[in-house]
Write a protein that binds this DNA or RNA. Sequence first.
DNA 1: TATTAGCACTTGACCATTGAGAGTGCTAAC
DNA 2: GTTAGCACTCTCAATGGTCAAGTGCTAATA
Lengths: 345, 345
Amino acid sequence: MQILNERSRKVLYAVVQSYINYPDPVGSRVVTKKYSFGLSPATIRNIMADLEEMGFLLQPHTSAGRVPTDLGYRYYVDSLVAEGMISYSDIEILQELYRKLETLKNDMDLLLNEATRNLSMMSHYLGIAMSPMPDMTTLKRINLLKYKADAIAAVLLTDEGMIKNKVISVDSEISQKDLNRIAGLLNAEFSGYTFDEIRLKIVREMSKEKIKCDTLISRAMKICQEALSFPFSGLFVSGLAEVLELPDFADLGKIRELSKAIEDKHTIIKLLDKLSESDGVHVLIGSENSEDELKKLSLVVSPCREGDRPIGVVGIIGPTRMNYAKAMYIVEHTAKLITKMFSGR
Amino acid sequence: MQILNERSRKVLYAVVQSYINYPDPVGSRVVTKKYSFGLSPATIRNIMADLEEMGFLLQPHTSAGRVPTDLGYRYYVDSLVAEGMISYSDIEILQELYRKLETLKNDMDLLLNEATRNLSMMSHYLGIAMSPMPDMTTLKRINLLKYKADAIAAVLLTDEGMIKNKVISVDSEISQKDLNRIAGLLNAEFSGYTFDEIRLKIVREMSKEKIKCDTLISRAMKICQEALSFPFSGLFVSGLAEVLELPDFADLGKIRELSKAIEDKHTIIKLLDKLSESDGVHVLIGSENSEDELKKLSLVVSPCREGDRPIGVVGIIGPTRMNYAKAMYIVEHTAKLITKMFSGR
DNA sequence: TATTAGCACTTGACCATTGAGAGTGCTAAC
DNA sequence: GTTAGCACTCTCAATGGTCAAGTGCTAATA
């Protein structure tokens, strides 16, 4: 963090806070008026000119006030964290909102989906959540059920509290008894491994099996491989209508960018996946995001973990002009509540 | 359908088609130029004035051309149907796009979800799809799996090709053997009934059981009741980014309306549910929709059925200025392909 | 030396005016 | 019944002028 003297820092805060509250460039007058420094506008102007030179502020045009740059927000957010300034009194509301989630505690997907709704309602930004990716999802048990003559249903239960199912077509009918035997085999072999690990093991087994050619085992492998091939799109987003009310998304271009960002979920998934193994609340501001789609947005994100196993990621997407303190507070507590709910089941 | 003479009808078509291609009010000059009538603009003007009087056209302002009213679109669409004018040559593209869906044919939810993506890609409007509602979903089989000491997983297989699962918390541990017995009981009792019917039967059983107090049966009923209580949100929507490129959604207000319409899925679900028992392609134009959120949008929708059992609804949502012929074509064939895929499994 | 008052300057927002262009309805002629 | 001609209406884009906000700079001040 770059070193700023007390006075400069206070001015920077004032600008950021004022701009967060009201989306107009901040002039030297309002700084002196709303945030009582013992200084005249002229002095503030000098300080602001310095801050601009250092890259914390910028002027949209000569005769406008100043606006924080991404770097400015970053400084502000870092200070919030360093000084423990995040504190809100509406923890009760938050808990109230999550009380109803209790009934969903055993189904991670439903839980996360509902969480996004709460996140967006409370923050007025986009709520997002993601269940763990295949490399972080460990199989608890696989069950195979006869569905129709030429199809079986595979039901995968995971340690992270998810149920995934997949219908698999088969050429010849298999009895439920055989299915149970196959499932037993698979459980003995794969239970406790992540989906990705299992895929790898299957590939290895398969090449071995080609030689031995045991029909039951190779059949089991094929079925399991298919069972794991469902599209893994565990990303939940909600609150678009909410976000469109913000003045930050008053123009069409920004809305388009946003809707693209949330429609090809790929970018966000990649990003959240990276963070799922970390700890605590992360704040990614505008250009700090490497993906183009997100360069004009900010993310506040926190993983939910049980011990060292990630069980999901929750967060908020909003404009860079975001109420970071509030967003961080909401995300942090949402993550904590989900974690608690999940481990205290 | 109101009676128009040949000439008036042709003018109406010209206006609608021109406006669909290019979103500017259509003047008398363009009608004579692009659509070669043997008439002068003056004559066309007279005809257009008549059409306006009849409610098929309107002028945004005195010196602008004419724009179709919802009634105008309606007349146009009805004529398309009556005259079998819907024909496109890109059926191969459509089939190509759906070939990859073959692998999903056994999982209705995945299939419909993927279908919405195709629908929106092809039409450049919003693709929508809905799986059958609980009153139209018949239970094929229920399976109960032990998940954890205090939780079991219920897996419901339906005749419509859906798998639904629900984790159910229980106070005392139940062995898999008991679960199998319970599942057997439930299957014997409820297989072949719709979810709604089952709910009703349970309520009746429960009141009976209170007297007899057979623990196994009452336990089974409770479990089944919980199993059926998952949130039934079988609505899939995609293509928002696509739709925002249209000039029809150039202003913020319309975007807000649209995003509200698709975010509280309730309205659309209700509408589609009504149509799921009908047949063929339906076109709902703007104000024909009773729900406010949809009054400025048009829907082109078709149910997918196997015999007399609805297996889903697919469709397109777009502006009233929609290419109805193309939309109807796409929706019709998508519905047919899904139906075929499903029955020819 | 740090701060401040004063002032000239820049710029976007707002508003009224204007002219061009598109399209109309009406009337009279064909 | 159709059309040419014309006056009329309305939108849109461009223009220019004023206003208020906010700046940077300079000189005065504590």
